[in-house]
């Protein structure tokens, strides 16, 4: 079973309504994405096309970071958009931001494909560019809350450099803990500890 498929099924369970309004400008953008998902649920192909135009560049960028190969990433992008189309009616039960839902589908698909891809050949070296530019314009335009983005930026910057690097390699590049240990030349146990503590710190900071 595909991960994104299952999690989309899981997300279809009835959950309480989303909590808290978003800042106005971001809320408008978020609402636009939500509106498009609603129209997709009504089988409006033009809404899917508009959604594709809005998010496909970001999704392909994310997929390529994990999958490394353009052809595989583009194939995955097809799967993701078809899945979004099929599951759009289930977004109403999701309590997070539309882009978080869409991105989760993409990342889970990539992780699923990554296991098969890595079985066939080793992945390339880790990309050199930094990933902590959480204010990058294109993403800002279609994700939702400036407040949440700033909160993540602030909390993330409070982590140690090792914690940040481990979390980035896992979340953005799809690295396993073993691969991270190899990449940063640290013992696996240490990497696991950094990640666990990093996540706990991040949660404490964001929830405070």
């Amino acid at each position: 079973m595909h991960v994104h498929g299952l999690m989309a099924d899981v997300h279809s369970q009835t959950l309480p309504a989303r909590a808290g309004p978003l800042p106005s400008q971001d809320a408008t953008q978020a609402e636009h994405l939500e509106l498009l998902l609603g129209r997709c649920a009504q089988r409006d192909e033009r809404a899917l096309q508009e959604l594709y135009q809005l998010v496909s560049g970001q999704l392909l960028g994310i997929l390529m970071r994990i999958l490394r190969r353009r052809a595989v990433a583009e194939e995955a992008l097809q799967d993701v958009m078809v899945k979004i189309w099929e599951r759009a009616d289930q977004y109403v039960a999701y309590r997070g931001r539309a882009m978080a839902w869409i991105t989760a589908i993409a990342r889970y698909r990539a992780i699923d494909l990554l296991r098969r891809q890595q079985a066939a050949s080793p992945i390339d070296d880790a990309p050199a560019e930094a990933l902590v530019d959480i204010t990058a314009a294109d993403f800002v335009d279609t994700t939702t809350s400036a407040r949440m983005r700033k909160a993540l930026h602030d909390c993330f910057s409070k982590l140690t450099a090792e914690q940040r690097r481990c979390l980035e390699l896992a979340y953005v590049d799809g690295y396993s803990q073993d691969q991270i240990a190899g990449e940063i030349e640290s013992p696996l146990g240490t990497v696991k500890s950094w990640m666990r503590r990093g996540l706990a710190s991040l949660k404490r900071c964001l929830d405070s």
């Binding site: 390529m64 997070g96 949660k203």
Partner: peptide, 20 residues
């Protein structure tokens, strides 16, 4: 799971978009 998806999504902001 949903909360972590929402917490972390903005970490992807630095990923460079790629035109399909």
């Amino acid at each position: 799971v949903r909360q972590w998806e929402d917490r972390l999504v903005d970490l992807l902001a630095g990923v460079v978009p790629v035109a399909p």
